[in-house]
Amino acid sequence: MNVIAVLGRTGLDLLASLGRASQFLGATLVATVAGLMPGGGRFSVGLGLLVRQLYVVGVLSLAIIVVSGLFIGMVLGLQGYTILSDYGSESAIGQMISLTLLRELGPVVTALLFAGRAGSALTAEIGLMKATEQLSSMEMMGVDPLRRVIAPRLWAGFFSMPLLALIFSVVGIWGGMLVSVEWLGVFEGSFWGNMQSSVEFGSDVMNGVIKSIVFGLVCTWIAVYQGYDCVPTSAGISSATTKTVVYASLAVLGLDFILTAVMFGDF
């Protein structure tokens, strides 16, 4: 009976948490819209806050994205060549690398890295602002923290993720080309030619972009919500940061399956 009670309690807590998170997202969207309406504050101030967060969340994530993209592309080149050469199909390696990166690895790995680097930083920053009463003091000054603190971070993640995923894929393709063409001797013309003939802008590139837009929103939503809702103690912030990485990673992987089934499934 105890096990059933615990399961029931856990389920109800999860539902309540999901409800609070949805309410929080709704309130942030309303705060964003209110900020864009006449009398909602100066547009230049809001834009300035967004640009600053785009730098913090996006530009500062570039290093890890570029390096990871390069190595993953190089590994794909190496593994792909080893497998394809057994069948004499090494000329298809450009096609394999580009489709793997654009459809799957680009959006998914970028989102996982983003959750680990930017997501955890967002949660810790907002959680610390809460613990040190900075959010409360903002409220008491008549400034809505949802509009001032949360919205710029949420939209920065939303806009950054697809760009980071595209950069990841481009660098990955270049890394794969370095290994397969420059090192292992695959003919450059077939590498690029096969890629050009098989990759479609709509179904491959754009579907990858759509995936990363969804991942961007979900990862950043989880990160800012965990920070805003955390218990304002050092243990609470630490737990919230861990939850951000775990929940965002699981959400990305789960959503990837659903999106892949919808976009590429041929049932």
Binding site: T132, Q134, S136, E139, M140, G142, V143, D144
Partner: peptide, 23 residues
């Protein structure tokens, strides 16, 4: 309402125990 509450708070000041300065 939230809007009126925020307007009222502009006529209030609050000194928090920790200071709560933006770091």
């Amino acid at each position: 309402r939230k809007k009126d509450l925020y307007r009222m708070r502009q006529r209030m000041g609050m000194l928090f125990q920790s200071g709560a300065l933006f770091t």
